[in-house]
Each structure stands twice: as C-alpha cells, then as structure tokens.
Design a protein around this nucleic acid. Structure first.
Lengths: 202, 202, 202, 202
DNA sequence: AATGAATGAGCCTTCATTCAT
DNA sequence: AATGAATGAAGGCTCATTCAT
C-alpha cells in the first residue's frame, strides 16, 4: 500500500533499525538485509533511500550525534546555579546528558564503539567523530575556564577522554555501571580537578 | 622447503601479522589470506595452525595482553621510591607502561579497539578483556589504597577508564598525543585524585 | 501538470532518448530509468507507454530504420542523371544517404551495432534488420541490373556488406572516417565493380 | 580431486566456454555462473583465475584474436604462386583464413560482434580490436602494393571493411552464406579492385 | 610441513516491473 | 496523465574453510 511522503518515515526507520541491529550483533557486520527487514522494508528500498551500506551507517552516526547535540543544548540552557555555581551546574548537566537514559543505552553504546571502528576506514565517519569531540571539548572548556582558569584545557581533555573510556568499558557489558553511577564517576573526576586547582593554583 | 620445528615460528609470525593487518585496515575485516600472506605463508597453513579465523584473532589478543602484562610486572618490580613515595612510583610506572613505545603503537591501538568489538561477539575475547581490566584495576587498587585509603576503588575505576579513553581517542588519529603526553595526562588525573583525597578526607 | 495528447510527444522523446543513451554508454545496458530521465519523465511512464524495455528498444530501431528509409526514398526520387547515368546517380544517392549527417552520427552508429546484438535475442529485432537488409539489397539490385546485368546480385551483396562493414569500423571510433570519406569508399567499390563488369563481361 | 597444474587447463576451459556461451545467448549478458558451469567449475574459481567478468571476456577476445593471427601466419607462409601470382595467392590465403571452419563459426561470429560492443566500454577491448584491424590492414597493404601500387591503401581499407561487413551480416543468421561463399565474395571484391587498377592506372 | 585447488554460502547492489494514488 | 513507492529476482564478487597431494 504505497503512499506519498514515505521517504522521511523510511529513512528514520532505517536509521533506528541500524542502531538497534549494530547493538544487537555488536559489530558492523550487519547485513543491509537485516537492517531493512528490521525496519520493515526490502533491502532494495534501503539502498534506494541511502545509496549504500556506508551511507546508512553514516546516517545512523549523524542521528546519534545530532540527538546528543540537541539534548546537550537543551540541558545546558536549562542548567541553573547560584552565583559562581552556574558553570559547575552546566558541566554537571553536560556530563549527565552523556549518560542519560536516551544515550547510554546498550545499543547506542555498542553503536558508538563501532562508529570508532568505522572512523578508521571512512573519512566521513572520522570527520563526524572529530566534530563530536571538538564540540565536547569546547563545551567543557567554556565552563571550566571560569572555574579553573588556565587548567581548563587539560581538564577538558581529561574529562573528555574519561567519558569515552566509561563508554568503552560499558561496551564490555560486564559490571553493572548504570547511567547514574557513570555520570557520578565523571563528576567526581571533575570535582577532583577543580579541588586540585584550588589547592595548588597555577 | 618445509622444515621441522617451524610451528612456534609460524604461529608467532601469524600473530604479529594479524596485529599489523588489523592496524593497517583499521578493522577486523581482514582476510585470512591477507594475514597469511603478510606472514609469509599460505592461508591453508594459517588455518592448520590455529583452526580458524577467530582463533587467530584470539591468539593476537592474548599476545598483546601477555606482552603488556609482562612489561607491567617488570616495571612494577623496578619501581623505586623513597618512603611513602614507593606506591606512587609504582602507579606512575604502571601508567607509563601502558603508553610506552611498545604498546602505544598505531597498530596496537587499532587492534585494541577492534578487540573490544570482537569481545561483543566472542565470549573468549570478552573474557580476555575482563581479565585485563581486572588486573589493571587490581594493580591500581593495590597501590592506591596506602595513599588514598577508602577512595582507592573509585579512583582506580576512574584511572582505568581514563586509560582506555585515551587509547580510544588516539584511535581517531587526529591530534598528536604522543605516549609521553598521554601518560602525563593520566598521571595528572592520578595526582588530582590524591590531592583531593588529602584535602577532603573521607 | 499532466496534459492531454502528450502520448506522441512522450513516445518520441523516449525513442530519441533511447538512441542517445545507447550511443552514450555504447551498449544495451542502459536502464529504463536513465532513458526515462533523459526523456524527462518517470520510468513508470516509459513503461506505461511501451510496455517494457524491449519494446522501447524496438521502437528506437523502427525509428532509425524508418528515418533512413524515408530519406532514401526522397534522395532516390531526387537523383538525376543524363541518359544511362541515372541509375548510377541513384546508387550514389543511396550510398550517400547512409552516410549523411543524420544517419552517420556516433550515437546512431553505436545504436546500429547494438541493434545487431539485440537481433540475436529478439525475433522482432531480427525481423526488422532483415527488412532493412532486404530493402537495401533490393534498391542496389534494382539500379545495378541495368548497369552490370547478371552481376547485379553479387555486387549488391558486396556493397551491402561493405556499407555495414564501414559502420562497424566506425563503431570503434578510432580513425577519423567522416561521412564523405565513408561514402567515397563505398562508391569507389561500386565503380570498381562496374569497371570490372565492363572489362570482363559475363 | 584437486591436482596441481590446473591453472592453464582451467583458464583454457573458461575461455572456450566464454566464447561458446556468448555464441549461445548472442550477447554479453552471460553470467559468470553460466560460463563457469559450462566450463565445469564453480563461479568462485572463475573469479579466482581471472579476477572478474571483464577479464574473462578480454581473455576470450585475446584467444580468438591470437588464434586467427596464428593461422594467418601459417597460411601466409604456405601460400605459393607462380611469378607475380604469389602476392595474389597470399591475399587469397589471408581472406580464406578469416572464413575457414575454425574462425567462421556461429559462436565465434557472435563473439566478434559482441567484442565490438565490449570495445565501446572497455579500453582494453578497444585496443585489442584496433590491433587486429591494424594487422589486417597491414597484411592486405603489404601484398596489394606490388599489385595495385598506390591504390593499395584504399583497397586494403575496402577489403578490411568488407570482411567485417560479411561477418556482421552473418551474425544475423539469416541467409546461408557459408565460409566458401563468404571468402569468394571478398575475393571477388579483391579481383574487382585489381582489375580496375589495371584498366585505369593512377 | 605446506600448499594449490576448489567451493558453498553469503552479501551488496542493481533493475525491470508493478501498483496505489 | 503521471509518479513515488516498493520489491523480487538475479548477478558479481568475496572469503573462510576443506582437501588431496
């Protein structure tokens, strides 16, 4: 029962199915046929809309990255804090967003891991991940500077790497490190960095 | 000209070729033929020695893990430090080993990343990575306890995740973060954790 | 904005686009979608009008054959010549028509070649080409007989094959053999045949 | 029952099967699977030995061209003729070789036609056909010059095109023009060209 | 000990064709 | 009149794996 205006619906379904399937099998060795079936359509249609397997993967990456970006923007805007605590509140909000229920899903985590692998091969995937990293660092730096001054850069890099490290660890799926604990872990590192800066000023 | 006693030599060549090839293409999509050719033998022989592709991968993982383990042991034993600084010296040695010239190679980094992917599928790979994590945490914990007491566990987890995060970041290959900077980054986090513990005791 | 009476226009556009596309890619491996797009409509509409891909090809063949046929008729009627030279003039006109600017185009030449291929598969295409051959031979024979008598048949076959051979050679696209040279080549063969007949009568 | 030294045997079988299959279906739309099956092996093996479909086609072309080339060489060397008739005898031998039982087969004729189509797409196929044409013209020219002098070039081109034209005509498969008649047709054109040269010297 | 030979299985991709609107 | 939507079928190609030698 073909209808008009299906394209955005189909594309969206495919993107979501892609993330789900990558999460399910844990690697990029997902067939287009599986993705398409999971999205309720034929493989041919998937190709028709995206042009190829890598395009589908890239669209899935963009979806995840865009979603995270949007949520971060919303949360940052909503972050409140008395006096000088506002920057700290924004940092906490930023960290928590990375580990909230929407982004810190098994499927999304597995997808992340595989996007890193894809970035070894695909220049576009590489570019996308770098954009993500750039944004993350920029956000961290922006709110760290008023708090720790010249140590902002180093601390931003440390926290950025830590976030990814926690994701990576979660990809192993062993220990139960839920979103709350994960963000607590990173926030603790944030506070340690701030505390140290106060103790030993530059 | 087939010779006797070639097995260990062949196996070793295959393992090294596997790491090199995974590093070269940046994914597990390496053909057995490529690995075998790179190791100077026929695909059939590679099969004969390892029994299958996954076995080859697992052998490569074990090789990387074992090498790291050995070096850590050596370095820890060699670590010296006056008085209470001995534990700190051991921690620094542990961290530096993870980022020395032998382990922090592009090929090895790429292999690591892909071992995480493999661990999503292969139970044995998963087990191996957990063993690695366990050892790392255990090592960290052991030398952190005398320094930060009850905060050892949390700090160990934090540093462990940070190490992986730095590796992951390096897999993107963008910014020049050499081994020295990488270990400095993690050591800074270590010191921040210690400093915080001293400022705000439990 | 669908209009009435579009059918003949659409069909014509498709036929011309077919010839152009076959010429462009040099084979029958042209997709219906390409032809339709080149003709400014959807593949579905192309199908609607012709019923299938082979029908489109056949229509293109008929178009080329009919065009050639018409032009030959016109030129033959226009051919003048004093006394016994009239038949010779008609033969020359016939040959020249095959190599004039309208028929001796890269696209048409490539199409011709591929029509021969199509004729290996499609009975209708085969029939069409035979009709063309029949007409060509008949035309040649008709004006050769008054000149070379009993040798007309053999000479007609020879000239007919030669014309096709020149087309085939041109399909390779290498040497610059323009229409003028091509017809000169065939006319020279015609004159040679006539000269021989005069020298050694049957 | 795998054996050693199969490669040349397999390659040869594939080449022959390719020609046969192209002849059978009358176009290049032959699947590698069909060719392989017809040659008694799996499609994978065909790919293994040739690397791809086009390579298989090109190998088939080379085979046909090489075979023709060899036979021509042999026949030319064997051609005898009293006095000035030797060149004529060589020309006749050359023409006859093109239409003997080995080269003027339905399958080979169909293959020829399709090689022309392939030459529209594949540079290598194009090159091969040009080499063939170059040799044919060169051979014709060489033995025509002593007979018709300055008219050798034009006559060579004419005869070359005529040979191809006869092949093309035969590809239609209609009229029964056996090898003997075909070569007689071309030889008649040769003689006509010679006769004309004698009647009207340059 | 070592390998050339061989294949089954599977995947990405293309495309003619159909259909509801 | 016209098209976007959709797919079944098929083809080229790859590759891990097996086997006889």
């Amino acid at each position: 029962m073909p209808k008009v205006g299906m394209e955005p619906i189909r594309r969206d379904a495919l993107v979501k199915a892609t993330i789900a399937e990558i999460g399910r099998v844990g690697s990029l060795d997902v067939t287009v046929a599986e993705i398409a079936r999971s999205a309720g359509m034929s493989p041919a249609l998937a190709h028709h809309y995206f042009g190829g397997k890598e395009q589908i993967f890239l669209a899935a990456m963009r979806h995840v990255l865009r979603a995270l970006h949007r949520q971060v923007a919303v949360r940052l805007r909503a972050a409140r804090g008395d006096n000088g605590r506002r920057h700290h509140a924004r940092l906490v909000a930023l960290i928590r967003t990375n580990f909230d229920d929407e982004n810190y899903t098994p499927a999304v985590i597995a997808a992340w891991l595989n996007f890193y692998v894809l970035a070894q091969t695909s220049v576009e995937a590489n570019r996308l991940l770098r954009v993500y990293h750039g944004r993350l660092l920029s956000n961290l730096r922006h709110d760290l500077r008023p708090i720790v001054g010249g140590r902002a850069e180093a601390l931003a890099v440390r926290l950025g790497a830590l976030i990814d490290g926690v994701y990576l660890r979660q990809a192993l799926g062993d220990q139960a490190l839920d979103g709350k604990s994960a963000s607590a872990l990173v926030i603790a590192a944030l506070d340690a960095g701030i505390a140290e800066a106060n103790v030993r000023p530059e």
